[in-house]
Design a protein around this nucleic acid. Structure first.
Lengths: 153, 153
DNA sequence: CTTGCTGCAAAATTTTTGCACGAAT
DNA sequence: ATTCGTGCAAAAATTTTGCAGCAAG
């Protein structure tokens, strides 16, 4: 089952309606792989379904977050980016200097999650692990405050 | 050495000036333990140092993020919250329903960080690990969309 | 049918710029 | 002295609210 189908299915299971707008928004989000601003996603949605309003994008993203399928992150750029939590987890290396984002797969957090789930009686849906530091390029050209914005992933 | 001293020291080491405003902002942020909005931090700073402007708070927070001492997170509340990465790491259990945040200490991410640091030649300063799911209360009163805002930590 | 969802526009917040003055090194 | 940082105000951008009409179940 592809991610779009999984998402729409989860929406239905949770008692939410499967509207045209929500289908289009989920499809666009999955198609671009996440890492997108609410506004940019609106633009992408409009390419396929021009009648969908910006509000529905905001509300659908909020909904996906509640269902544990997405998560807003803030890179200090003024607008939240939404990432997919499809497989249940997401892993980042984030450069504090230029904002570069590297994704990686390896993760040892699952067993920690098991323990926490038991201790706090918390039903875990997904997790996000971020390492923050300085990327290779910024280490080389280590000029304070020299932001290289066009490296944003 | 307390956190405030550590922060001001890091600022100086990195070639930034230790101004009255920055001292006050760092002090207020550390005093409240992080988890605060830029605007709320401004209010807190004003209690001790009324002459500090909102702009300096924004700029100082951005600076702390670049130095790996803080990190903005987005809880879907319209404004970014800043958390301290003092000890080098931060760990959350976040409820997707009501926004409750539980902090925990245990973490097995350090060894993963070592591996990644080597593989990507990435100089790691800190990390953030978040587990997302449904908290105890929300599991009990599992009414779709029932947000309990006054539980925010 | 009934209730939930949408979309528009306007309002409220939050964040960024520009520039002259003040402060730290 | 020379930069760097500040603070004010205004502008820009992002997000939320309210409400009538449409659509999904």
């Amino acid at each position: 089952m592809d991610t779009t189908t999984l998402f729409t299915k989860k929406l239905a299971e949770s008692g939410y309606r499967l509207t045209q707008s929500r289908r289009a928004i989920v499809q666009a989000l999955v198609a671009c792989g996440g890492h997108i601003t609410a506004d940019d996603l609106t633009i992408k949605v409009h390419e396929m379904a021009p009648m969908v309003g910006r509000m529905s994008v905001y509300r659908t993203l909020e909904l996906l977050c509640e269902l544990g399928l997405a998560r807003p992150i803030y890179q200090g750029t003024g607008a939240a980016h939404y990432i997919l939590l499809d497989g249940g987890s997401h892993h980042h290396l984030i450069c504090n200097r230029c904002g570069l984002v590297i994704e990686f797969d390896h993760c040892a957090a699952d067993e920690v999650g098991q323990t926490l789930s038991a201790r706090f009686n918390f039903q875990i849906q997904s997790h996000l692990l971020e390492f923050h530091g300085i990327c290779t390029d910024c280490q080389t050209s280590s000029l304070k405050g020299e932001d290289v914005d066009d490296k944003l992933s």
